[in-house]
Amino acid sequence: MKPAAFAYCAPRTLEEAISLLDEHGYDAKLLAGGQSLVPLMNLRLARPTVLVDINRVDGLAFVESGDEVVRIGAMTRHHTVATSSEIRGASPLLSHAAGHIGYRAIRHRGTLGGSLAHADPASELPCVAVTQSATVRVTGSAGERTIRADELFLAEMTTTLAPDEIVTSVAIPRIRPDEGWGFREFVRKVGDFAVVMAAALLRVADGRVASARLGLGGAEGTPRRVTEAEQALVGSVLGAETIEKAARVAAEAVEPTSDIHGSADYRRRLVHAMTRRALQDALGRLEAGHG
């Protein structure tokens, strides 16, 4: 479990980092928190010949509160996402979910940008990003562009990023005071990767669901919103029955993956349970009067 030989560069600026990526193409890899990449390198499943460490690049770790969104720099650590009062104020859903990532030591190293770029289907931040329709800002040799979170994830561990593109920040829409959120995941042991997770965001007006967002992670190769279940909720009076119905719809809508952590059937049942519980939590928060 020792990596193959590689060259190591630690650029100070984004431009330098991009030109290194541009120069080495698929042979180069960015190193952020290293919590996913380094194990893969040690197992020699990843064999980059050039490692571009962006930990010293200025301006990638920040939290910027706006009226509509909170913008978070790609190098922001999970721990900060979980604990920063600015982020918590804007999206308690995101903070809460970040607290579920691995263990404390991992959260202190792992980064938001790394988590999105790595695109592990069982990771929390991509699931929340998709649920909340976050946008991801990336810079490459061709310049800057903004990608909708649901367009970032192509398949398990695969994104639409070009090899020379760097995620620089993520904009998360603020959760409004009249919205209720819920997040549930099933892990076999504390800190382990989730088998299935569900994130819910609901707004109720005049006693009926005005908008519903329901995102799933771990169930399929990429995180996604379950529009079928969202549609089942919108317009309904929120209660145990409607929630159960939406959970059932979600369970039927997914095409779950199957692996040693859970068969497709099992994942489907977890989707049902986690969805119901996340929606119940959202309802509970609405009833308690705080999103």
Binding site: R188, K189, V190, G191, D192, I260, H261
Partner: peptide, 9 residues
Amino acid sequence: DYLIPGPTE
């Protein structure tokens, strides 16, 4: 893939 219990379990 091979889980062992920790203090939390």
